[in-house]
Every structure is written in C-alpha cells, then in structure tokens.
Amino acid sequence: MAARASVADRDPLRAATRSGVAVGVATAAYGVSFGALSVAAGLDIWQTCVLSLVMFTGGSQYAIVGVIASGGLAAGPAGIAGAALLGARNVLYGIRVKPMIGGGFWRKTAAAMLTIDETTAVSTAQPTLAAQRRGFWVTGLVVYLGWNLTTLVGALLGDALGDVRQYGLDAAAGAAFLGLLWPRLRELQPVAVAIGAAVVATALVPVLPAGLPVLLAAAVAVVVGMFDLFAVRAAALDAEEEPT
C-alpha cells in the first residue's frame, strides 16, 4: 500500500530530523560568542541582531566583526569585501541544494536565506530526496531560530560583561574559524592553500590596514586553483580503468 510508508521509508526521515536538530542546536550554541564579540567590537545590540537576522552566515559575521574590532570604521569597505568573499561559498551551496528544494518562488526564497554550511552538509548527507528535504528544513529552522536567539543573549551578556578578553572570547573566534576550516583539510591542495594564506596574511598585518591582509591571502587560492597546483593526479588512473 502506497499510503502507508514502510519502516524503511520513515527511518531516513527520522534520522534526517535527528541530525538536523543536533547540528542546529550545536551551531546555535556559539551564537552567544558571536553576540558578545560583536558588541565588544563596537556594534550595538540592534546592529548585532541585524547581522544574524539578515546576513545569517556565521563565517562572514565573525569576519566583519573582527575587521571592525581591529580597524574601526575605516576598515568598513575591507570588512564588507571580506564578508562577501567568505559568503561566496553559499553560491555553490545554492547550486547544489536547489534541485532538492523544489516548490515555487516563496519556498525557494525561504530556502535561499537558509542556505549555509550546516543546511547543505546535513541535507546532502541524506540517502533519499524526502530525507534531504527534511534535513534541510529542520536544520535551517533550528539554526535560524537558535542562532538569532543566542546572538541576542550574547549581545546582552557582552554589554554586561565588559572586557571580553578576560573570558577568552577573543580566542573563541579563532577556534570557531578553525572549526569551519577543519573538515575542508582532507587533501594536500587545501592544506597547502591554508598554510600559504595564513603566512601571507600574517606577513601583511604590519604593512597594510586591517582587513586587507585577509583579502590578499585569497589570491593564494586563486593561483593554486587556476593552475591546479598541489593536486593529486588521479585522472590518469581513472582513464585507464574506464570500460570501452
């Protein structure tokens, strides 16, 4: 009977819901550190909340707040460029998840707003289309609600805490970026780019205004990507094994 879903059909849905909630709650939890850091950087509570409500992509949010913390208003343009470049990966995510969303204009609009690391990771990991869809929406809604709520809590706390360095929150930002980077370091090429970019950015810190060293470090990726340096050459092997 088609109307009664078998256990095998329902289990992937439950699994998708479970991982969506787990990832959502874990991600939302560090909204507190974003809120507190943002207020410490000089943004007010409203500006901090607008970043989480509208920008809603953690890496870019941390990036612009960090640039403003070290360079002030003068670093604004560099901060915007950095946030946008870092947010450019969401274009790739959109292309990947678009086919599983379906529906009309409004559903696609809502989905686009929720297209981030976490929703893409959970949805693309599910085995069936229904489970992918479920994973996307559960993760997206839990992260959106949780991230905005904890951002507000963090901003209010940060206002009351005073110097956030005392609580090590300045170190939390580096650790959070490292957490975003870690799963991407599975091959030689990204590891080489990461090391190169870190060296370039550090070397440029004393000679350029805040924000620019990070932008210029992206050039390392463009050079390595265009010329495909440090790539493990598997293409030749694949060609030999291809059946004729």
């Binding site: 070290s70 950095g82 870092l86 991407r184 780019v193 970019a197 004393p206 350029l208 390392v220």
Partner: peptide
C-alpha cells in the same frame, strides 16, 4: 578555485585573529 578561496579566507582569518591586534 571557489572552494579554495573559502579555505584561504578561513586560514587567513584564523592567523589574523590569533596573532594580531590592529596592525
């Protein structure tokens, strides 16, 4: 290249956030 730009930016941000204050 798009994937590597994300890697480069994250690595640069880690470095800058960890070893710099202003310039």
């Amino acid at each position: 290249t798009a994937n590597l730009v994300t890697v480069a930016l994250l690595a640069a941000l880690i470095a800058v956030q960890t070893v710099s204050t202003g310039t």
